[in-house]
């Protein structure tokens, strides 16, 4: 079944097509959800909502741009939506601009699980900005619109996220070394 045919059948709410579409994209979207979420459970919730949105809005897909891209945007939007709902008044972040220093790090055997873990541990907005900018290629301008912050905040959040990640990686390595000694 071609992708277009699959999409057509999903528009008709054909159960088999929906199942097929899920099978085809679930793992890609779930990895995205994992990155954007605090933990596994939240990622599952996001994946759940993502697919509900996908199947409800699939008729709105205009066949311009990749279908996978469209799906990913929905997944990211779902995560952002959750962030917007959760953002509290006391979620005060230091908005002062931090220099965007080049943070270099040794690429030793760092497991994906570990890296995923430290992303998930980031404060919500840092995690979103880092994911959007570093991993999914959004610009600061786009990010500022998506999560309703200024470009400056976006930049500073990104820098803080990187700092945190770097620290965690270094701690982890130090830990490993001390254990090995």
């Amino acid at each position: 079944m071609s992708l277009n045919q699959l999409i057509e059948n999903c528009i008709k709410r054909d159960a088999k097509a929906q199942s097929q579409l899920y099978k085809q994209y679930a793992s890609k979207l779930f990895s995205l959800c994992l990155k954007y979420s605090r933990n596994y459970t939240e990622a599952e919730d996001n994946l759940h909502e993502t697919f509900l949105t996908v199947f409800n809005k699939i008729s709105q897909y205009n066949h311009k741009g990749s279908f996978e891209g469209w799906l990913k945007r929905i997944a990211i939007n779902t995560a952002l939506q959750k962030y917007r709902e959760h953002v509290g008044v006391f979620d005060i972040v230091n908005e002062e601009s931090i220099e965007d220093v080049n943070i270099e790090i040794n690429d030793d055997e760092l497991s994906l699980d570990f890296l995923l873990g430290i992303i998930q541990e980031l404060p919500d907005r840092y995690r979103l900005v880092f994911n959007l900018y570093a991993l999914d290629g959004y610009s600061h301008a786009e990010i500022s619109e998506l999560i309703d912050i200024s470009v400056g905040t976006s930049k500073s959040n990104l820098a803080r996220a990187r700092m945190i990640l770097k620290t965690k990686i270094e701690e982890y390595k130090a830990n490993l070394n001390s254990q090995s000694i």
């Binding site: 599952e44 994946l47 943070i103 994906l112 570093a134």
Partner: peptide, 29 residues
């Protein structure tokens, strides 16, 4: 190993990252 920009480290690691969700997910959806 070489020193790498942290973004690049993550990009490379996550490039082909796919995670199969739990089996029960689909039935819930």
């Amino acid at each position: 190993s070489d020193k790498k920009h942290i973004d690049r480290l993550f990009q490379e690691k996550f490039k082909d990252f796919e995670a199969v969700p739990n089996e029960a997910m689909w039935s819930r959806i």
